[in-house]
Design a protein around this nucleic acid. Structure first.
Length: 444
RNA sequence: GCAGCAGUAGCUCAGUUGGUUAGAGCACUAGUUUGUGGAACUAGGGGUCGGUGGUUCGAAUCCACCCUGCUGUACCA
């Protein structure tokens, strides 16, 4: 410990930002490897775009265009506003608009990247997180939308989830639009309020949602949320229509047929899902986990979906002359990892290094030659990084969960037979150098 | 943003109606063993008791404001 008490820099992290440790990262890497495997099979191209974009290229859909810092992290560079991307879809639209003439049509791309949101963090929700996106740009064919659902389902199962662990909910923006017509609703703000209310059926139930559609609702903490102020007649019509369990729009009927062709069944029609409010134009889907997720304190929490997507036919058009209908899906990888860690035990092989103990510096040449033999055999190995006494070295090996240490002191060097100590059993063996690799492979 | 609850050592927490120098367990460091880890024993380091201001002879304890965290809610392109 440092004793001086000067002005110390803070060890705390900014709100919503976290250090991620090896255990989590290895599981994340595992998931990424599964994703890549599946993406290649489905014929998607890999793309990377920068973390920053000009605010107006990704800010077309900001609620408040005058303030680019609303929800995003931005700064002014020279005279232009830059923002950290808040998703991978807006940059894709920008990329397609920029490279329209060169790229294949339709354009299928997948992307893994960090995104940043200036919002309140929650359990498993941060202000910086890794997202995975797959999109089809330049086709109206609903086969694309269907295939995204099938594909995401394959990824989840490759990650170890079974059909009962998750469900893909589907709906269409067209259904809500027709509902608004039915109750003669024109006001866009009111429409938004209704969509937001409907989005909460899962979480709050119909009783609360009806309050939100009407005058408003007071929640557990005593906070009051203003409602959409619909008449009770209109609310009743909405409820009746939304409780129908069969889709009433053409696009959904079409997609159901395609699912049949794929023999895909793990979906559920749910007209209450909403997703991005102004962004989507047609089919929308949401990936929901069905198992219980807990926070650090072991309390069950409201986890919500780990991702979703849908059809956004107008996004590319906003950039200029090209009109490219598109559909895509995104998954929050950190959230998926957070949930997955609780669901199942991951046995991810990560070989910890064999530690070669240091007796004296003069023998370093011998230690290094042993180390080279092991490393050449692809065995993770290190010479103890320091000059402590043996006890410390053993404690270190134990702490990093090393499977074994090699003792190669003067006696061993003289006889040419290092001692191998298995740290799980505590047993020691004197071994010929040429047998060392084989013996170690038995242990690890 | 709004609301409820919380903040004492690296972690988990105790701290009586306000009363000397603020405690425990785990972790850490050193030793018992200068060539042997996971156990035990001994010793040790580490806290402006979230911050600031106030009440008081005296505050971790009471009051005000602020900060941070958790949970709910709102927003979430």
């Amino acid at each position: 410990m440092i004793k001086e008490k000067k002005i110390k820099p803070s060890k705390e992290l900014p709100l919503g930002f976290v250090d991620r440790q090896e255990k989590e990262l290895l599981i994340r890497d595992f998931i990424i490897s599964k994703i890549k495997e599946v993406m290649i099979k489905y014929g998607f191209q890999y793309l990377e775009t920068p973390s920053f974009e000009y605010s107006d290229s990704i800010g077309k859909f900001l609620p408040d265009k005058e303030r680019p810092d609303q929800g995003v992290f931005s700064f002014k560079d020279e005279n232009k506003w830059l923002s950290l991307r808040y998703d991978l879809t807006a940059p894709l639209a920008r990329y397609v608009a920029k490279n329209y003439l060169e790229i294949p049509k339709p354009f299928k791309r997948y992307q893994l990247g960090t995104v940043w949101r200036n919002e309140k963090p929650g359990p498993g929700r941060f202000r910086e997180f890794l997202q995975f996106d797959a999109d089809y740009v330049g086709t109206k064919n609903l086969q694309a939308d269907a295939e995204l659902c099938v594909m995401i389902s394959e990824i989840l199962e490759k990650c170890g989830l079974s059909q009962s662990d998750y469900v893909i909910k589907i709906s269409s923006r067209k259904i809500t639009e027709s509902l608004f017509k039915k109750i003669n609703l024109e006001d866009d703000n009111q429409k938004l309020t209704i969509l937001r209310a409907l989005d909460k059926i899962d979480r709050l139930g119909w009783v609360a949602v009806k309050q939100l559609l009407g005058e408003g609702r007071k929640d557990k903490s005593g906070d009051f949320t203003k409602g959409a102020k619909l008449s009770s007649d209109s609310i009743e019509i909405l409820e009746k229509e939304l409780k129908k369990k069969t889709p009433s729009s053409e696009d959904l009927n079409e997609i159901l047929k395609i699912f049949k062709n794929y023999n895909f069944q793990n979906f559920e029609f749910d007209p209450s899902i909403v997703r991005g409010l102004e962004y989507y134009t047609g089919v929308i889907f949401e990936v929901n986990l069905k198992f219980d997720v807990k926070n650090i304190k072991g309390q069950s929490i409201q986890f919500g979906s780990i991702g979703g997507g849908g059809r956004y036919d107008n996004l590319v058009k906003n950039f200029g002359d090209y009109d490219a209908p598109a559909t895509g899906i995104s998954i929050g990888l950190d959230r998926l990892v957070y949930a997955l860690i609780q669901k199942k035990e991951f046995k991810i092989k990560k070989s910890k290094p064999i530690v070669i103990c240091v007796f004296n510096k003069e023998s370093m040449k011998e230690y290094i030659s042993l180390q080279k033999i092991l490393r050449d055999a692809s065995i993770s190995t290190e010479i103890y990084p320091g000059e402590n006494k043996l006890k410390k070295q053993m404690e270190y090996a134990n702490k990093i969960k090393s499977p074994a240490v090699i003792l190669y002191g003067d006696d061993e060097i003289k006889s040419g037979k290092p001692t191998l100590r298995d740290l799980t059993t505590g047993k020691e063996k004197s071994i010929e150098i040429k047998e060392l690799v084989n013996e170690i492979k038995k242990i690890i």
